[in-house]
């Protein structure tokens, strides 16, 4: 059959590796195997945000979604009550909508941080920030069911910040670095594996993913489509990013 080589210009590839190796002291990296070519990186002192096609796609998605969710009006809900002959149209109050819109934008900004950062501590920080802003989105709703569910989600959020930061601390203690570029080059060992597991548990709790989804399903009963949608977006984006992160660490 015809050869289906990697469609990467090898000279460019070498050049980028040479530049990277100055800062990250690497020759091969898991990041390239997972995400494709590294397009660029910003060498701050310890934090090295890098741009790959994957993170570009994620950032573009998040920016587009955040803009559209921020500019759209909340939907109306038709409500009929027994013994009443009218159909009411209910929507989110203006004051409440303003606060929730702000929280939506904040969540979008935090998500951009989640997907671009090249440092696991910052990753943990941004993930917990998305969790906090998610709680903020639901805090203003005057509905007992939703508030109950949000309260439970908040409990999970607080409990899960321990494994999240604990995992980061374990990895730092074992390897002496937090930069993903360097970590992607290191062989994994048992302690890193434990740290990865803790990180996964933490992120799953913060993003209201698989085992903790029950609260999420209750929470999205609330009014205000654009704001609720942001929560789903944030949890799925955190999930996509955590897959990448765990694979890089391994």
């Amino acid at each position: 059959m015809e050869e289906r080589n990697l469609t990467i210009d090898l000279d460019l590839f070498d050049n980028i590796y040479r530049n990277l190796s100055v800062i990250w002291c690497i020759k091969m990296n898991d990041i390239v195997d997972i995400n494709g070519l590294i397009i660029g990186h910003f060498p701050f002192v310890d934090i090295v945000p890098y741009i790959t096609p994957f993170s570009l796609a994620l950032v573009a998605t998040i920016v587009t979604f955040t803009v559209f969710l921020a500019i759209s009006n909340p939907e109306y809900r038709s409500i009929t009550r027994f013994k009443e002959d009218v159909v009411r149209k209910e929507t989110v109050e203006k004051k409440e909508a303003r606060f929730r819109r702000f929280m939506t934008i904040l969540c979008g900004v935090a998500l951009i941080g989640v997907v671009t950062t090249g440092d696991i501590f910052n990753f943990a920080l941004f993930v917990s920030l998305t969790g906090i802003s998610n709680i903020g989105i639901f805090a203003g709703i005057k509905d007992t069911h939703v508030l109950d569910a949000a309260f439970q989600y908040g409990l999970v959020l607080m409990i899960c910040s321990l494994p999240l930061f604990g995992g980061v601390a374990l990895i730092l203690a074992n390897t002496g670095t937090l930069s993903l570029g360097v970590l992607g080059n290191l062989p994994s060992n048992q302690i890193i594996n434990v740290g990865r597991t803790l990180l996964l548990i933490g992120a799953v709790g913060e993003g209201a993913l698989a085992p903790f989804f029950a609260t999420k399903v209750e929470m999205i009963r609330a009014k205000g489509a654009p704001f609720i949608n942001m929560m789903h977006l944030s949890s799925l984006m955190v999930f996509t990013r955590i897959i990448e992160l765990l694979l890089i660490l391994g």
């Binding site: 990697l6 096609p53 759209s72 939907e75 489509a225 949608n229 789903h232 999930f239």
Partner: peptide, 28 residues
């Protein structure tokens, strides 16, 4: 077409889920 990263397709799948959710919510 490009044979790029599989994770991007997983991301597309995730966004598809978000879109399903948003489509449902947006009509009221």
């Amino acid at each position: 077409i490009l044979g790029g990263s599989f994770l991007i397709i997983i991301m597309c799948y995730a966004v598809h889920k978000v879109a399903e959710h948003g489509i449902g919510l947006a009509s009221g």
